[in-house]
Amino acid sequence: MSLRHKIATGAIALASASLVAFLGKWEGEGQNVVYADKLARGLPTVCKGITRHTSPYPVIVGDYWSPERCAEVEQMVVEKGQLGLADCLTNPRISQDTFDALSSHGHNVGTPSTCASRAVGLINAGRIAEGCKALAWGADGRPVWAYVTDAQGKKVFVPGLHARRKAEAKWCAQ
């Protein structure tokens, strides 16, 4: 059974309650005023990580978004990302937890980047535990997906991003 089939039959849920709660923890719960995300070089962000790259509405620093608008756009953005992720996941043995952890990763770094990741390659090859670990750790044992580029163009390690990657890796492997 393909992952798309599992979604269509309800065996895998889109925008599960667990995923929405996880995103609230890491992306911000009740963040209704658009702010300049300093980790994303000032990218205007609102709700649970909604940006101009994902929103059908303008995202302008200082604007207020109602809880209803946040819920509407979050649902749409999460489901769109998950459907894109489902297209690159070929291992039908993926659990809801693995799918949700990968969805969180894609929500944060972009679904195309997650799909192209070493983690997804390993998971598709049937090496789920190893792929889950690869969400937080490189083959060399160093942290991955936990760096931002500063104003001088230098890569800077962000402990909070690595904490999120470790939480995703743990959740993925459940």
Rank of each mutant, 00 (worst) to 15 (best):
residue 80 K to P: 14
residue 117 S to P: 12
residue 145 W to P: 00
residue 12 I to Y: 02
residue 69 R to K: 11
residue 152 Q to L: 13
residue 68 E to N: 11
residue 89 L to H: 05
residue 33 V to I: 15
residue 155 K to C: 05
residue 147 Y to A: 06
residue 92 P to Y: 15
residue 166 K to P: 08
residue 86 A to W: 03
residue 99 F to D: 01
residue 78 V to Y: 08
residue 87 D to F: 05
residue 111 T to H: 02
residue 24 G to S: 05
residue 69 R to C: 08
residue 115 C to F: 08
residue 63 D to N: 10
residue 125 A to R: 02
residue 11 A to T: 10
residue 65 W to F: 14
residue 116 A to T: 06
residue 108 N to T: 01
residue 29 E to H: 14
residue 23 L to T: 08
residue 128 I to F: 07
residue 69 R to H: 10
residue 158 V to N: 04
residue 78 V to N: 08
residue 34 V to A: 06
residue 85 L to D: 03
residue 141 G to E: 01
residue 65 W to E: 05
residue 134 A to M: 07
residue 9 T to W: 14
residue 158 V to E: 00
residue 20 V to F: 03
residue 130 E to M: 06
residue 169 A to L: 08
residue 71 A to Y: 01
residue 131 G to I: 00
residue 14 L to R: 02
residue 85 L to W: 09
residue 52 R to Q: 14
residue 147 Y to C: 01
residue 145 W to R: 13
residue 141 G to K: 13
residue 166 K to G: 05
residue 82 Q to Y: 02
residue 28 G to N: 11
residue 93 R to V: 03
residue 124 N to K: 10
residue 118 R to P: 00
residue 41 R to E: 06
residue 117 S to D: 03
residue 119 A to H: 08
residue 88 C to S: 02
residue 25 K to H: 12
residue 37 D to L: 12
residue 51 T to Q: 02
residue 162 H to W: 09
residue 168 E to D: 09
residue 173 A to V: 13
residue 83 L to H: 04
residue 45 T to I: 13
residue 33 V to D: 04
residue 62 G to T: 11
residue 13 A to S: 09
residue 47 C to Q: 04
residue 91 N to V: 10
residue 85 L to N: 02
residue 135 L to T: 00
residue 94 I to D: 01
residue 16 S to P: 04
residue 8 A to D: 14
residue 73 V to W: 04
residue 80 K to E: 11
residue 76 M to R: 11
residue 173 A to Y: 02
residue 138 G to S: 00
residue 104 S to M: 10
residue 80 K to A: 14
residue 148 V to Y: 02
residue 91 N to T: 08
residue 106 G to C: 05
residue 65 W to R: 12
residue 1 M to L: 14
residue 82 Q to S: 08
residue 115 C to D: 00
residue 171 W to P: 07
residue 160 G to N: 09
residue 146 A to E: 00
residue 116 A to C: 04
residue 39 L to R: 13
residue 22 F to I: 07
residue 1 M to Q: 11
residue 3 L to M: 14
residue 129 A to L: 13
residue 130 E to V: 06
residue 31 Q to M: 01
residue 54 T to P: 13
residue 4 R to E: 15
residue 31 Q to R: 04
